[in-house]
Nucleic acid binder design. Sequence first.
DNA 1: TTTATTTCGGATAAATTTATCCTATTTGTA
DNA 2: TACAAATAGGATAAATTTATCCGAAATAAA
Lengths: 144, 144
Amino acid sequence: MFSKACEYGIKAAIFIAVNSSENKRVSPKEISEEIDSPQAFTAKILQALVRHQVVKSIRGAYGGFEIEKDKIATIKLAQIVYAIDGDNIYKGCGLGLHTCNENHPCPVHDKFKVVREELREMLENTSLEQLALDIKSGVSFLKI
Amino acid sequence: MFSKACEYGIKAAIFIAVNSSENKRVSPKEISEEIDSPQAFTAKILQALVRHQVVKSIRGAYGGFEIEKDKIATIKLAQIVYAIDGDNIYKGCGLGLHTCNENHPCPVHDKFKVVREELREMLENTSLEQLALDIKSGVSFLKI
DNA sequence: TTTATTTCGGATAAATTTATCCTATTTGTA
DNA sequence: TACAAATAGGATAAATTTATCCGAAATAAA
Protein backbone atom coordinates (compact mmCIF):
# COMPACT_ATOMS: atom_id res chain seq x y z
CA MET A 1 0.00 0.00 0.00
CA PHE A 2 2.62 2.51 1.10
CA SER A 3 6.28 2.59 0.17
CA LYS A 4 8.90 1.31 2.60
CA ALA A 5 10.00 4.91 3.07
CA CYS A 6 6.50 5.86 4.14
CA GLU A 7 6.16 2.92 6.50
CA TYR A 8 9.44 3.87 8.16
CA GLY A 9 8.38 7.53 8.25
CA ILE A 10 5.10 6.80 10.01
CA LYS A 11 6.72 4.52 12.56
CA ALA A 12 9.56 6.97 13.16
CA ALA A 13 7.13 9.84 13.73
CA ILE A 14 5.17 7.78 16.23
CA PHE A 15 8.34 6.85 18.10
CA ILE A 16 9.48 10.47 18.20
CA ALA A 17 6.04 11.52 19.44
CA VAL A 18 6.14 8.95 22.22
CA ASN A 19 9.50 10.26 23.38
CA SER A 20 8.74 13.94 22.94
CA SER A 21 5.71 13.52 25.16
CA GLU A 22 8.25 12.53 27.81
CA ASN A 23 10.62 15.35 26.92
CA LYS A 24 13.18 13.06 25.32
CA ARG A 25 14.97 13.71 22.06
CA VAL A 26 15.90 10.68 20.00
CA SER A 27 18.63 9.95 17.44
CA PRO A 28 18.30 8.19 14.08
CA LYS A 29 20.14 5.29 15.67
CA GLU A 30 17.61 4.85 18.46
CA ILE A 31 14.78 5.33 16.02
CA SER A 32 15.95 2.77 13.51
CA GLU A 33 16.58 0.27 16.27
CA GLU A 34 13.17 0.82 17.75
CA ILE A 35 11.27 0.59 14.47
CA ASP A 36 13.55 -2.00 12.88
CA SER A 37 14.65 0.00 9.84
CA PRO A 38 17.97 0.78 8.10
CA GLN A 39 19.57 3.69 9.91
CA ALA A 40 20.96 5.85 7.09
CA PHE A 41 17.84 5.40 5.01
CA THR A 42 15.68 6.32 7.98
CA ALA A 43 17.79 9.44 8.49
CA LYS A 44 16.98 10.55 4.93
CA ILE A 45 13.28 10.08 5.59
CA LEU A 46 13.57 12.08 8.79
CA GLN A 47 15.11 14.90 6.78
CA ALA A 48 12.03 14.91 4.56
CA LEU A 49 9.82 15.09 7.65
CA VAL A 50 11.94 17.99 8.93
CA ARG A 51 11.62 19.84 5.62
CA HIS A 52 7.86 19.40 5.79
CA GLN A 53 7.89 20.55 9.39
CA VAL A 54 6.40 17.37 10.75
CA VAL A 55 9.31 16.88 13.13
CA LYS A 56 11.98 19.23 14.43
CA SER A 57 15.69 18.46 14.40
CA ILE A 58 18.28 19.85 16.74
CA ARG A 59 21.82 19.59 15.41
CA GLY A 60 24.98 19.22 17.40
CA ALA A 61 25.73 17.70 20.76
CA TYR A 62 22.67 16.76 22.78
CA GLY A 63 20.65 17.17 19.61
CA GLY A 64 18.21 14.77 18.02
CA PHE A 65 14.65 14.71 16.78
CA GLU A 66 11.56 15.86 18.58
CA ILE A 67 8.02 17.07 18.03
CA GLU A 68 6.75 20.02 20.00
CA LYS A 69 4.38 18.63 22.58
CA ASP A 70 1.35 20.65 21.61
CA LYS A 71 1.85 19.74 17.95
CA ILE A 72 1.56 16.00 18.55
CA ALA A 73 -2.21 16.11 18.72
CA THR A 74 -2.51 18.20 15.56
CA ILE A 75 -0.25 16.18 13.24
CA LYS A 76 -2.24 13.77 11.12
CA LEU A 77 -1.03 10.69 9.25
CA ALA A 78 -1.94 12.44 6.00
CA GLN A 79 0.83 15.01 6.55
CA ILE A 80 3.43 12.31 7.03
CA VAL A 81 2.30 10.34 3.99
CA TYR A 82 2.22 13.51 1.93
CA ALA A 83 5.75 14.49 2.99
CA ILE A 84 7.14 11.14 1.85
CA ASP A 85 4.92 9.50 -0.78
CA GLY A 86 2.86 12.47 -1.89
CA ASP A 87 -0.89 12.20 -2.06
CA ASN A 88 -1.13 10.13 -5.19
CA ILE A 89 -2.15 7.06 -3.21
CA TYR A 90 -5.51 8.48 -2.35
CA LYS A 91 -5.86 11.06 -5.08
CA GLY A 92 -4.46 9.55 -8.30
CA CYS A 93 -6.31 7.22 -10.67
CA GLY A 94 -6.43 3.59 -9.58
CA LEU A 95 -5.43 2.42 -13.05
CA GLY A 96 -2.91 5.17 -13.69
CA LEU A 97 -4.91 7.08 -16.29
CA HIS A 98 -3.52 10.53 -16.89
CA THR A 99 -7.00 11.99 -17.05
CA CYS A 100 -9.55 10.29 -14.82
CA ASN A 101 -12.59 12.11 -13.52
CA GLU A 102 -16.38 11.96 -13.51
CA ASN A 103 -16.52 12.94 -17.19
CA HIS A 104 -13.75 10.64 -18.31
CA PRO A 105 -13.53 7.85 -15.74
CA CYS A 106 -11.35 4.76 -15.77
CA PRO A 107 -13.24 1.46 -15.50
CA VAL A 108 -12.88 1.31 -11.72
CA HIS A 109 -13.28 5.02 -11.01
CA ASP A 110 -16.48 4.83 -8.97
CA LYS A 111 -15.50 1.65 -7.15
CA PHE A 112 -12.09 2.99 -6.23
CA LYS A 113 -13.47 6.29 -5.14
CA VAL A 114 -15.11 4.67 -2.14
CA VAL A 115 -11.90 2.97 -1.04
CA ARG A 116 -9.70 6.00 -1.56
CA GLU A 117 -12.17 8.21 0.25
CA GLU A 118 -12.10 5.81 3.17
CA LEU A 119 -8.30 5.90 3.13
CA ARG A 120 -8.13 9.67 2.82
CA GLU A 121 -10.54 10.16 5.69
CA MET A 122 -8.62 7.75 7.86
CA LEU A 123 -5.29 9.46 7.15
CA GLU A 124 -6.70 12.93 7.68
CA ASN A 125 -8.43 12.03 10.94
CA THR A 126 -5.78 9.93 12.62
CA SER A 127 -3.43 11.97 14.79
CA LEU A 128 0.03 11.07 15.97
CA GLU A 129 -1.24 11.48 19.50
CA GLN A 130 -3.74 8.63 19.24
CA LEU A 131 -1.12 6.31 17.79
CA ALA A 132 1.52 7.31 20.32
CA LEU A 133 -0.85 6.67 23.21
CA ASP A 134 -1.40 3.07 22.13
CA ILE A 135 2.32 2.52 21.94
CA LYS A 136 2.85 3.99 25.40
CA SER A 137 0.19 1.82 26.93
CA GLY A 138 1.52 -1.28 25.22
CA VAL A 139 -1.60 -1.82 23.16
CA SER A 140 0.21 -1.60 19.82
CA PHE A 141 3.75 -2.21 18.58
CA LEU A 142 6.32 -0.65 16.26
CA LYS A 143 8.21 -3.79 15.27
CA ILE A 144 8.38 -7.59 14.83
CA MET B 1 -1.89 1.76 -4.92
CA PHE B 2 -1.23 -1.03 -7.41
CA SER B 3 1.94 -1.67 -9.38
CA LYS B 4 2.18 -0.62 -13.01
CA ALA B 5 2.12 -4.30 -13.91
CA CYS B 6 -1.18 -4.69 -12.11
CA GLU B 7 -2.68 -1.60 -13.70
CA TYR B 8 -1.75 -2.91 -17.15
CA GLY B 9 -3.05 -6.35 -16.24
CA ILE B 10 -6.46 -5.08 -15.19
CA LYS B 11 -6.83 -2.90 -18.26
CA ALA B 12 -5.65 -5.68 -20.55
CA ALA B 13 -8.12 -8.14 -19.04
CA ILE B 14 -10.96 -5.69 -19.52
CA PHE B 15 -9.99 -5.10 -23.14
CA ILE B 16 -9.78 -8.84 -23.81
CA ALA B 17 -13.17 -9.31 -22.16
CA VAL B 18 -14.72 -6.61 -24.34
CA ASN B 19 -13.40 -8.33 -27.47
CA SER B 20 -14.14 -11.87 -26.40
CA SER B 21 -17.74 -10.89 -25.81
CA GLU B 22 -17.76 -10.12 -29.54
CA ASN B 23 -15.88 -13.30 -30.43
CA LYS B 24 -12.66 -11.50 -31.27
CA ARG B 25 -9.21 -12.58 -30.22
CA VAL B 26 -6.64 -9.86 -29.62
CA SER B 27 -2.85 -9.66 -29.81
CA PRO B 28 -0.44 -8.07 -27.33
CA LYS B 29 0.10 -5.37 -29.94
CA GLU B 30 -3.58 -4.41 -30.11
CA ILE B 31 -3.87 -4.62 -26.35
CA SER B 32 -0.91 -2.40 -25.58
CA GLU B 33 -2.08 0.15 -28.12
CA GLU B 34 -5.55 0.17 -26.68
CA ILE B 35 -4.51 0.46 -23.05
CA ASP B 36 -1.42 2.60 -23.71
CA SER B 37 1.20 0.29 -22.25
CA PRO B 38 4.60 -1.04 -23.37
CA GLN B 39 4.01 -4.03 -25.58
CA ALA B 40 6.67 -6.53 -24.48
CA PHE B 41 6.06 -5.78 -20.83
CA THR B 42 2.34 -6.21 -21.32
CA ALA B 43 3.00 -9.56 -23.00
CA LYS B 44 4.81 -10.74 -19.86
CA ILE B 45 1.89 -9.72 -17.72
CA LEU B 46 -0.49 -11.56 -20.05
CA GLN B 47 1.62 -14.67 -19.55
CA ALA B 48 1.06 -14.38 -15.80
CA LEU B 49 -2.67 -14.08 -16.39
CA VAL B 50 -2.54 -17.16 -18.61
CA ARG B 51 -0.66 -19.15 -15.97
CA HIS B 52 -3.30 -18.16 -13.42
CA GLN B 53 -6.01 -19.10 -15.90
CA VAL B 54 -7.56 -15.66 -15.98
CA VAL B 55 -7.19 -15.43 -19.75
CA LYS B 56 -6.60 -18.07 -22.40
CA SER B 57 -3.91 -17.83 -25.07
CA ILE B 58 -4.02 -19.47 -28.46
CA ARG B 59 -0.61 -19.81 -30.07
CA GLY B 60 0.20 -19.86 -33.76
CA ALA B 61 -1.54 -18.34 -36.73
CA TYR B 62 -4.91 -16.79 -36.00
CA GLY B 63 -4.06 -17.01 -32.33
CA GLY B 64 -4.26 -14.35 -29.64
CA PHE B 65 -5.79 -13.83 -26.23
CA GLU B 66 -9.37 -14.44 -25.22
CA ILE B 67 -11.58 -15.16 -22.26
CA GLU B 68 -14.29 -17.77 -22.54
CA LYS B 69 -17.56 -15.91 -22.77
CA ASP B 70 -19.23 -17.53 -19.81
CA LYS B 71 -16.15 -16.92 -17.65
CA ILE B 72 -16.24 -13.16 -18.10
CA ALA B 73 -18.99 -12.72 -15.53
CA THR B 74 -17.25 -14.94 -12.98
CA ILE B 75 -13.76 -13.40 -13.08
CA LYS B 76 -13.27 -10.86 -10.31
CA LEU B 77 -10.68 -8.11 -10.05
CA ALA B 78 -9.25 -9.89 -7.03
CA GLN B 79 -8.10 -12.79 -9.22
CA ILE B 80 -6.26 -10.46 -11.56
CA VAL B 81 -4.61 -8.54 -8.75
CA TYR B 82 -3.63 -11.78 -7.07
CA ALA B 83 -2.09 -13.17 -10.26
CA ILE B 84 0.15 -10.13 -10.64
CA ASP B 85 0.71 -8.35 -7.32
CA GLY B 86 -0.34 -11.06 -4.90
CA ASP B 87 -2.78 -10.28 -2.12
CA ASN B 88 -0.41 -8.40 0.14
CA ILE B 89 -2.08 -5.10 -0.72
CA TYR B 90 -5.21 -5.96 1.14
CA LYS B 91 -3.90 -8.63 3.46
CA GLY B 92 -0.43 -7.52 4.63
CA CYS B 93 0.30 -5.10 7.48
CA GLY B 94 -0.07 -1.45 6.58
CA LEU B 95 3.25 -0.62 8.25
CA GLY B 96 5.07 -3.73 7.07
CA LEU B 97 5.26 -5.48 10.42
CA HIS B 98 6.17 -9.12 10.09
CA THR B 99 3.67 -10.08 12.75
CA CYS B 100 0.57 -7.92 12.90
CA ASN B 101 -2.70 -9.22 14.25
CA GLU B 102 -5.30 -8.54 16.93
CA ASN B 103 -2.92 -9.69 19.66
CA HIS B 104 0.11 -7.87 18.33
CA PRO B 105 -1.19 -4.99 16.20
CA CYS B 106 0.77 -2.26 14.49
CA PRO B 107 -0.27 1.29 15.46
CA VAL B 108 -2.68 1.60 12.54
CA HIS B 109 -3.98 -1.96 12.56
CA ASP B 110 -7.61 -1.21 13.38
CA LYS B 111 -7.79 1.89 11.22
CA PHE B 112 -6.26 0.15 8.22
CA LYS B 113 -8.47 -2.86 8.64
CA VAL B 114 -11.49 -0.85 7.59
CA VAL B 115 -9.80 0.44 4.45
CA ARG B 116 -8.35 -2.88 3.43
CA GLU B 117 -11.63 -4.62 4.04
CA GLU B 118 -13.32 -2.09 1.78
CA LEU B 119 -10.68 -2.71 -0.88
CA ARG B 120 -10.88 -6.47 -0.56
CA GLU B 121 -14.64 -6.45 -0.83
CA MET B 122 -14.50 -4.20 -3.87
CA LEU B 123 -11.95 -6.40 -5.61
CA GLU B 124 -13.80 -9.61 -4.79
CA ASN B 125 -17.16 -8.29 -5.90
CA THR B 126 -16.25 -6.48 -9.09
CA SER B 127 -16.46 -8.69 -12.16
CA LEU B 128 -14.78 -8.22 -15.50
CA GLU B 129 -18.23 -8.24 -17.06
CA GLN B 130 -19.37 -5.07 -15.25
CA LEU B 131 -16.19 -3.25 -16.24
CA ALA B 132 -16.31 -4.44 -19.83
CA LEU B 133 -19.93 -3.30 -20.21
CA ASP B 134 -19.01 0.27 -19.27
CA ILE B 135 -16.23 0.28 -21.82
CA LYS B 136 -18.54 -1.05 -24.53
CA SER B 137 -21.16 1.57 -23.81
CA GLY B 138 -18.58 4.34 -23.77
CA VAL B 139 -19.18 5.17 -20.13
CA SER B 140 -15.60 4.51 -19.07
CA PHE B 141 -12.20 4.55 -20.77
CA LEU B 142 -9.00 2.50 -20.85
CA LYS B 143 -6.55 5.27 -21.68
CA ILE B 144 -5.58 8.98 -21.69
C1' DT C 1 38.47 28.02 21.24
C1' DT C 2 38.75 23.36 20.99
C1' DT C 3 36.46 19.08 21.11
C1' DA C 4 32.90 15.75 20.96
C1' DT C 5 28.52 14.98 19.28
C1' DT C 6 25.01 15.14 16.11
C1' DT C 7 22.20 16.23 11.91
C1' DC C 8 22.71 17.40 6.81
C1' DG C 9 23.67 16.28 2.19
C1' DG C 10 26.07 14.40 -1.74
C1' DA C 11 27.86 10.27 -3.96
C1' DT C 12 27.35 5.69 -4.66
C1' DA C 13 25.69 0.93 -4.47
C1' DA C 14 22.19 -2.78 -4.21
C1' DA C 15 17.67 -4.43 -5.10
C1' DT C 16 13.43 -4.26 -7.30
C1' DT C 17 10.33 -2.87 -10.83
C1' DT C 18 9.60 -1.63 -15.40
C1' DA C 19 10.79 -2.14 -20.13
C1' DT C 20 13.08 -3.99 -24.46
C1' DC C 21 15.04 -7.37 -27.63
C1' DC C 22 15.70 -11.57 -29.77
C1' DT C 23 15.00 -16.41 -30.48
C1' DA C 24 12.30 -20.67 -29.69
C1' DT C 25 8.06 -22.93 -30.03
C1' DT C 26 3.43 -23.63 -31.52
C1' DT C 27 -0.12 -23.86 -34.97
C1' DG C 28 -3.20 -22.99 -38.96
C1' DT C 29 -3.11 -22.92 -43.93
C1' DA C 30 -1.43 -23.27 -48.68
C1' DT D 1 5.77 -30.38 -45.68
C1' DA D 2 6.90 -25.68 -45.84
C1' DC D 3 5.65 -21.23 -44.55
C1' DA D 4 3.74 -17.51 -42.07
C1' DA D 5 1.72 -15.84 -37.95
C1' DA D 6 1.46 -15.92 -33.07
C1' DT D 7 2.58 -16.61 -28.19
C1' DA D 8 6.46 -18.14 -24.79
C1' DG D 9 10.46 -17.25 -22.56
C1' DG D 10 15.29 -16.06 -21.64
C1' DA D 11 18.70 -12.36 -21.53
C1' DT D 12 19.48 -7.79 -20.87
C1' DA D 13 18.83 -2.83 -20.07
C1' DA D 14 16.71 1.29 -17.96
C1' DA D 15 14.43 3.46 -14.21
C1' DT D 16 13.05 3.72 -9.61
C1' DT D 17 13.26 2.56 -4.87
C1' DT D 18 15.84 1.15 -1.11
C1' DA D 19 20.08 1.28 1.31
C1' DT D 20 25.01 2.57 2.58
C1' DC D 21 29.06 5.53 3.23
C1' DC D 22 31.51 9.52 4.25
C1' DG D 23 32.64 14.22 4.84
C1' DA D 24 30.52 18.95 5.84
C1' DA D 25 28.13 21.89 8.93
C1' DA D 26 26.18 22.99 13.33
C1' DT D 27 26.12 23.17 18.30
C1' DA D 28 26.70 22.41 23.26
C1' DA D 29 30.04 21.90 26.74
C1' DA D 30 34.64 21.74 28.62
